[in-house]
Amino acid sequence: MDSSSGIQEPFDLIRLSLSERVFVKLRGDRELTGILHAYDGHMNLILSDVEETILIVDQPEDGSVPKNAINVAKRKMNMLFVRGDGVILVSPPSRA
């Protein structure tokens, strides 16, 4: 198999996503999309043009949890290093 294009191990999927927009799900109720520029074996990432989505759960004083309790906050960042230990998954752009 051609090792420069084939996917033989998990990190190949990330390598083929370099300079493309990826979706990253993180621990701590956060998700990112951004253009992938670098990664290493710890799954540390460097992304640019990042949009972060933070999930916020409304919690009234009485301790109940309402049905539509989940809100999102969004934040944009130019260039971001993401520490690998917080990464749950990296998803490449969908290809037609």
Binding site: R27, D29, L55, V57, V65, I70, I88
Partner: peptide, 9 residues
């Protein structure tokens, strides 16, 4: 809540 509805750990 996030575990049940959004698949976070």
């Amino acid at each position: 809540v996030l575990f049940e509805r959004k698949g976070f750990c």
